Amino acid sequence: MATGGRRGAAAAPLLVAVAALLLGAAGHLYPGEVCPGMDIRNNLTRLHELENCSVIEGHLQILLMFKTRPEDFRDLSFPKLIMITDYLLLFRVYGLESLKDLFPNLTVIRGSRLFFNYALVIFEMVHLKELGLYNLMNITRGSVRIEKNNELCYLATIDWSRILDSVEDNYIVLNKDDNEECGDICPGTAKGKTNCPATVINGQFVERCWTHSHCQKVCPTICKSHGCTAEGLCCHSECLGNCSQPDDPTKCVACRNFYLDGRCVETCPPPYYHFQDWRCVNFSFCQDLHHKCKNSRRQGCHQYVIHNNKCIPECPSGYTMNSSNLLCTPCLGPCPKVCHLLEGEKTIDSVTSAQELRGCTVINGSLIINIRGGNNLAAELEANLGLIEEISGYLKIRRSYALVSLSFFRKLRLIRGETLEIGNYSFYALDNQNLRQLWDWSKHNLTITQGKLFFHYNPKLCLSEIHKMEEVSGTKGRQERNDIALKTNGDQASCENELLKFSYIRTSFDKI
C-alpha cells in the first residue's frame, strides 16, 4: 500500500482533458527560462521544448504516446526543470519506465491550478516501474492521483506527508504495488545497510526511497516546507523545498512566496507586481503582455491589467481597466465587458449561442446573426445582446428569417469595421425574408467608422429604411451602385405612401 494514499474509496472516473512563447529569463536562482504550460502528445517531438525550461508557468501534460519505446527515452533528460506552477499529468506514455532521468531536479509542483483537485496525476502508464522524482520536495496545493499503472512499484516507500501538507485526498490505487509483488529495495538494503531515512506512518517504520538508488530526502521537522541542505541544516524561511546553503534567500532552489532578481522575498516591493503567484514583474512586463494579447485571437491570451499590486489576466467583477495605466478602477454604474472572439468572429444561430455573449459591452471581433427560429426570440436576444455598444469588426445579418427588427441591439452605437466582410463591408444584410426595420432612427444613433453597407434580398425592408441608415451611420456616399439592390429590397412591402385627393359631386333626387 502506498504510504499516505487512500484505498478502496469510491472515486469519480478520471477524465483526461485534452506555445513556446518565453516569458522571460528567471535569473540567477533558476538555471534556465520560464516556459508556458505545455500539452505534449502523440510523439516526442515537442518534448524537446523543455530543454531550457527551469519553470513551467502553467501545467505540463505528457500523454497518448503509443509508439514510443524505452530506448526512445534513454537520452532524454531535462535537468534544468525545477518547478511547475500548476500540475504534472502523465497518461498512456508507452515505453517510459521512470522519471528519474527525465526530470531529475523537479523540486516543486505548486498546484496553482489543479487537474480535478490533483497536482500530480500518473494514470495508465503501462510501462512505468517507478516514479523516480527523487528531488520532489513540495506539492504546495492539491493532491496526488496514481492509478492503474500495472508495473509501478516504489510507492509504499514514499512518505507523501513530507511532500504535501495533507495526504487525506491522495488516491493511489490499482498499481502493481497493490499486489505486494514489488519487493522494493532501498539503497544499501541488499548489503544489509540502512542508507535512507525511515519514518513512521500508520504504525509502520519504513525506509523512504524513490528507487533502488535514490533515497527520499527527509528534512528535520523544524525546517517545515522550506527544505534543508545535504547536511540537514534548514533553508531560509522564504525558500521552498530545498537550498544549497542554509538561511540564505539567494540560495533557495525555489521560493515559498515570490522570486525577485535572484532572491526569494515575502512580497513584491514597489515598483514590482505579483505575477502568477510566484514571481515579481515590473510595469513594462505587464504592459507588454497586455499589448501582445490586445489584437491576438490565441486562446488563453489575456490583456493583463494591474489590481491590488498584482498583474492579473482581467479586472475583477465591479472594476474596469483604465487604459492609460492598466489599473483596475471601480465602475460607475454597470461595468464594461470586452469579449474577445477566439477566431475573430462568432455566429449567433440560437439563443444558446447568444447567451455566451451575455453582459458583453464591447465585441472584439465580428458578429454573424443567422437565426431561423426560436421561442420568445426578441426578448431572449435583447437579454443577451442588448448591452453590446461596440463591435470592432463587422455585423452580418444573414438568412435570419425569424427577425423582424434589429432593435434587440438596443445599445449598439459603434461598428468600427477594423475587419470587413469580403474585404469591403462593415454591415452586411443578406436574404432576411421578414426583416422590416433596422432601428427606430428617431431614437437610435449608430456610427460606422469604416467599410460599406450591403443589402440584398431583404424583400420587406424598404429602401427608405436603408437610406436612413446611410445618413445616420455616416456611410452615405461610400456605397457603390450594386451594394444596395434596388429590386430585391422592399419588393414585397408597401414602401411608397402617396396622399390621394378626392373630389365629389353631391346629387339628390331633384338636383344634379
Results as ranks from 00 to 15, higher is better:
29 L>G: 13
30 Y>R: 02
30 Y>N: 12
32 G>R: 08
32 G>F: 12
33 E>D: 08
37 G>F: 03
38 M>A: 10
38 M>H: 11
41 R>T: 14
43 N>D: 12
44 L>W: 10
45 T>S: 03
46 R>P: 04
52 N>W: 06
54 S>G: 00
57 E>S: 08
57 E>C: 14
57 E>Q: 07
59 H>P: 06
60 L>E: 00
62 I>T: 01
63 L>A: 13
65 M>Q: 06
66 F>Y: 13
69 R>Q: 06
69 R>M: 13
70 P>D: 15
70 P>R: 07
72 D>P: 15
74 R>P: 00
74 R>D: 05
77 S>K: 06
77 S>I: 10
78 F>W: 05
84 I>R: 00
85 T>I: 06
85 T>K: 04
86 D>Y: 02
87 Y>A: 01
89 L>I: 05
90 L>T: 13
93 V>L: 13
94 Y>T: 13
95 G>P: 00
97 E>S: 06
100 K>T: 08
102 L>Q: 00
103 F>T: 01
104 P>W: 00
105 N>G: 04
105 N>Q: 11
108 V>S: 10
108 V>P: 00
110 R>W: 03
110 R>Q: 13
110 R>A: 10
112 S>G: 11
113 R>Y: 14
118 Y>H: 04
118 Y>F: 13
119 A>D: 00
120 L>I: 04
122 I>L: 10
122 I>V: 08
128 L>W: 01
128 L>M: 10
128 L>R: 01
129 K>G: 10
130 E>M: 15
133 L>Y: 02
133 L>I: 10
134 Y>K: 01
134 Y>V: 15
135 N>T: 10
135 N>F: 02
136 L>P: 00
137 M>T: 07
137 M>N: 09
138 N>H: 15
139 I>P: 01
139 I>K: 00
141 R>P: 01
141 R>T: 01
142 G>I: 01
143 S>G: 13
143 S>M: 14
144 V>Y: 01
144 V>I: 07
147 E>H: 12
148 K>D: 06
149 N>Q: 03
151 E>I: 03
152 L>T: 02
152 L>S: 02
154 Y>I: 05
154 Y>K: 10
156 A>Y: 03
156 A>S: 07
157 T>W: 09
157 T>C: 13
158 I>C: 03
161 S>T: 12
162 R>A: 14
162 R>C: 13
162 R>W: 14
162 R>G: 04
164 L>W: 02
164 L>S: 11
165 D>P: 13
165 D>F: 14
166 S>L: 06
167 V>H: 05
168 E>M: 13
169 D>W: 06
173 V>M: 04
174 L>M: 07
175 N>Q: 13
177 D>I: 15
180 E>I: 10
180 E>A: 07
180 E>P: 06
182 C>W: 06
185 I>C: 11
186 C>V: 03
191 K>M: 08
194 T>N: 09
195 N>K: 07
199 T>K: 07
200 V>G: 02
201 I>Y: 12
201 I>T: 03
204 Q>T: 14
205 F>V: 12
209 C>H: 02
210 W>F: 12
211 T>L: 12
217 K>V: 09
218 V>I: 14
220 P>W: 15
221 T>E: 11
222 I>M: 09
224 K>G: 11
225 S>E: 07
226 H>D: 08
226 H>F: 15
226 H>I: 08
227 G>P: 08
232 G>W: 08
236 H>Q: 04
238 E>W: 04
238 E>S: 06
239 C>P: 00
239 C>V: 01
240 L>S: 07
241 G>T: 07
242 N>T: 11
242 N>I: 12
245 Q>V: 10
245 Q>G: 14
248 D>C: 02
250 T>V: 06
251 K>I: 04
251 K>S: 07
252 C>V: 00
254 A>T: 06
256 R>L: 09
256 R>G: 04
256 R>V: 07
258 F>D: 01
261 D>K: 07
262 G>Y: 02
264 C>T: 00
266 E>K: 00
266 E>S: 13
268 C>T: 00
270 P>H: 10
273 Y>R: 05
273 Y>F: 13
274 H>L: 11
275 F>A: 04
276 Q>K: 09
276 Q>M: 13
279 R>A: 12
281 V>S: 01
282 N>T: 13
282 N>W: 00
284 S>R: 08
286 C>I: 02
286 C>L: 03
287 Q>S: 06
287 Q>W: 13
287 Q>K: 09
289 L>Y: 12
290 H>P: 06
290 H>V: 13
296 S>V: 06
296 S>P: 08
297 R>A: 10
300 G>V: 10
302 H>F: 08
303 Q>L: 07
304 Y>Q: 04
305 V>G: 08
306 I>K: 02
306 I>H: 12
307 H>I: 14
308 N>E: 12
309 N>Q: 12
309 N>W: 13
309 N>H: 13
309 N>P: 03
312 I>P: 03
313 P>L: 10
314 E>Y: 13
314 E>C: 13
316 P>I: 06
318 G>W: 10
320 T>Q: 10
323 S>R: 14
323 S>P: 14
323 S>D: 15
323 S>L: 11
324 S>M: 09
324 S>N: 09
324 S>G: 11
325 N>S: 15
327 L>V: 02
328 C>T: 01
329 T>W: 12
329 T>P: 04
330 P>M: 10
331 C>L: 04
333 G>K: 09
335 C>V: 04
